[in-house]
Design a protein around this nucleic acid. Structure first.
Lengths: 161, 161
DNA sequence: CAGGATTGGTCAACATGGCTGCCCCAATTC
DNA sequence: GAATTGGGGCAGCCATGTTGACCAATCCTG
């Protein structure tokens, strides 16, 4: 008996879904691995980079904002922030409106280190954009946005300024 | 003095690169988190899923093929395969041509479990494909392929049968 | 056939980066 | 004055990665 598959668009069938899952896995893996060497040179790991990245991206963001972005526990983030502060890459100051808040910023040294790591990401991503062609980039963004839940999307978009 | 940036295409400038990095991070994170509940129900983690996934995808693949795909050490994979075998989700048999090889396969139970987990991935990815539109999917694939080094691309493509 | 290369398994030991539970303080808000 | 919020910290656990060494079976080649 023939497959009782309802008339679903070709691009929603299992092989196309699996292809997306796999490319996403391998693409993400290779991109993140591209900065591991630079990190371990300085005795740091990916957790440090994620914090550095978002602090670079949005200076003066608060600890709780960063917690929401990273979706980890206070404890895990605390360890990382302590280390980054001790190494002189991150500094904090009290919030103006609410003095309980700690506003996070990179020091000059932190900025330089983040820029160095970003260069590796930039090179890889730019090569991928170029090889795929300008027209592909919009599709790349659109599918990834679709993977992000509604409520989180605003937070991610809010990085862009 | 004006920025001495060479005439690089708009889509290769820093904001567009950062946008890609961030969407890739959040998209990947949310997709992988979507199966964590199903995994921890059975006391397993993502490492188990990755092995299950690729064994499902390419039955009778060898341990060394799986090692190359996962890019982890023999030790790490060994632990996972032992647990999956003990739980009756994976079974091995000796290779025909080369009897040193262990060909990996899912048991019926393993197949069912992988299918259950895949359903969550399928739903999320299909929703993303749909919301982005069919035209976006090709771009999504193309950029991700560009992130994967030449030599690895063949291995990934080889999953598709 | 002998000897080297390949495939796989195993051990001990350690690092990273998540997690929970519990407690604390200061600042703000009600 | 009480409750909430933002931040911090300790102890300890777990999952999953790492290195390095070593062994056994098998295959391949001179």
């Amino acid at each position: 008996m023939a497959a009782p598959i309802p008339a679903s668009p070709l691009f929603l069938r299992e092989p196309e879904i699996r292809r997306g899952v796999e490319l996403l896995y391998f693409g993400y893996s290779h991109l993140t691995r591209s900065i591991d060497a630079g990190l371990s040179d300085k005795g740091m790991g990916r957790a440090h980079h994620r914090a550095l990245y978002f602090i670079a991206r949005k200076p003066d963001l608060t600890v709780s904002e960063l917690l929401k972005l990273l979706a980890i526990t206070k404890q895990s983030l605390g360890r990382v922030l302590t280390e980054l502060t001790e190494r002189g890459l991150v500094e904090t100051r009290a919030g103006d409106r609410d003095r309980r808040q700690r506003l996070l910023r990179l020091t000059a040294e932190g900025t330089a280190f983040e820029a160095e790591l970003f260069e590796a990401l930039r090179a890889k991503m730019a090569a991928a954009y170029s090889s795929a062609g300008q027209g592909a980039v919009g599709g790349f963004w659109a599918v990834l946005e679709g993977l992000i839940p509604e409520d989180e999307r605003a937070r991610v978009a809010g990085l862009g300024r």
